[in-house]
Design a binder for these strands. Structure first.
Lengths: 256, 256
DNA sequence: GTCCGCAGTTTGGTATACCAAACCCTCCGC
DNA sequence: GCGGAGGGTTTGGTATACCAAACTGCGGAC
């Protein structure tokens, strides 16, 4: 009876291709709108089309790629609306998770988060962007994990990559650190309502700064107030302009 | 065996296999724990293994199936914990969606929901379980769609099948109808907080009756009270009680 | 009688080949 | 010159074949 979690050696090629493509998209070597052609990629990686197919389908699931037309697979364009939807999803899930975490967290969980906070603090002080991004990701993952709901975790996983993709340039690290600490305190206090409030504030702050960095525009107050009270429709202030290459095709994605 | 006698849209074989397998699982012809073997299924459907592979991966994504060990793919067992996680996810997403829907719903949206409610009422009166289940599903879909967030919709989609799977035997239709009507009224009133409150109550009622039908047991009050009503403002919701780990002790059984 | 090991079998992963629909570009007719 | 028809090309979907790892069961050693 071998370890049931050992699925590593299998699907190695697919995993390698998947990781490479995802990395290229995140790093910007594959830009929004670029096509993904099975044969071409298979040749480039020196593998057959089958694992490439599966990797592409996985990327579609992660939201990095989409089927533009039946035979045309491209890297997804990131519109202002995409960002808004992503952060709304975070609001729904991470706020809920924070509440559960406050109710269910074990001392061990809390210690782990505490440790990550220390790492984040050190990296912030050192200005090590790479590490900060990484630690912050793990911090959020841990908090969601503390909710003890695998399905919740799984629902957030597909967007984790996109999230890192769009927030990696955020540079308001000190503010982020403060908010993470407050969120931790709230969860540690065991008060779900307080934890939710801090999680909500954190997601919204992050939304604002992300939009600022991605699009260079400020959000109207209404844009982050959908939840509590009335809501305004949305940003749509000129979408993804900023993509220099959006030239070839007007991206029908004015969707919405 | 000549070439394919039927000329179908793209990915037709995969879709057909996927739909068939999902249906067999939902209908119970494939029972939890049953294995899915590529070759065997390929033979049975008279297709090659490739589309079967992809259908199986899709089913994994939908949560109907999982990789038990590297070479062993089985129909997922439905544990009490699975049900709990699913309903928590619904709480997080549908409650949030209801809030957005109240803020964003158009008269056209509302009219459509109204129409579905009428259908549901008729089916409930007629006791047509099949139709009721179907209409109720569409009702929930519509409400989530009214939130105007594609990502939110997409996040709920993978679990929609499982949800129908586990709730189709629920027979408290009249109560369901009442709650749906109340939820509709709340959304139509344009008050997000009220819409959220009704959505929350509805999900929890549904949770209780689903557990009752699936496992024949009642829930402790604590099981559905992890957090407040989830309103942003974090008013009320004083149940900060530490209920350590309601994570349950789900016997791997749970099915017939 | 039990346990270990080896070989046959099972089974998912990958590679290669073929097909049909969509795309593209040329060329012919006006 | 311009537009549409036609054929070649591209590209994803499917089928078939081969491989390696894991499982199974049988037989021999103790």
């Amino acid at each position: 009876m071998g370890p049931m979690t050992k699925i590593e050696p299998l699907g190695a090629v697919r995993e390698r291709v998947l990781a490479s493509l995802r990395q290229e998209i995140i790093a910007g070597r594959l830009r929004p709108g670029d096509r993904l052609v099975e044969r071409e990629l298979a040749d480039r990686f020196g593998v057959s089309r089958v694992p490439v197919r599966e990797a592409i389908r996985a990327l579609v699931g992660e939201g990095f790629v989409h089927f533009e037309t039946p035979r045309r697979t491209v890297v997804r364009r990131l519109t202002a609306n995409d960002v808004k939807e992503l952060f709304e999803l975070r609001e729904a899930l991470e706020v809920y998770a924070a509440g559960l975490a406050a109710a269910r967290a074990t001392p061990k969980d809390l210690a782990e988060v505490q440790e990550l906070l220390d790492l984040a603090a050190a990296a912030t002080e050192a200005g090590d962007a790479e590490t900060i991004t990484d630690v912050n990701s793990r911090l959020h993952d841990r908090i969601v994990a503390m909710a003890g709901n695998n399905l919740l975790t799984a629902s957030l996983e597909p967007v984790a990559g996109r999230l890192r993709w769009m927030t990696r340039r955020n540079e308001e690290w000190p503010q982020l650190l403060v908010e993470h600490r407050e969120l931790y305190e709230a969860i540690a206090s065991g008060d779900p309502a307080r934890a939710r409030a801090h999680a909500l504030a954190h997601v919204r702050t992050n939304y604002r700064s992300t939009v600022r960095h991605l699009f260079g525009t400020e959000l109207d107050d209404g844009d982050t107030a959908q939840l509590g009270d009335g809501d305004v429709t949305c940003v749509e202030s000129g979408d993804a302009r900023g993509e220099s290459d959006a030239a070839s095709e007007p991206g029908p994605e004015g969707e919405r």
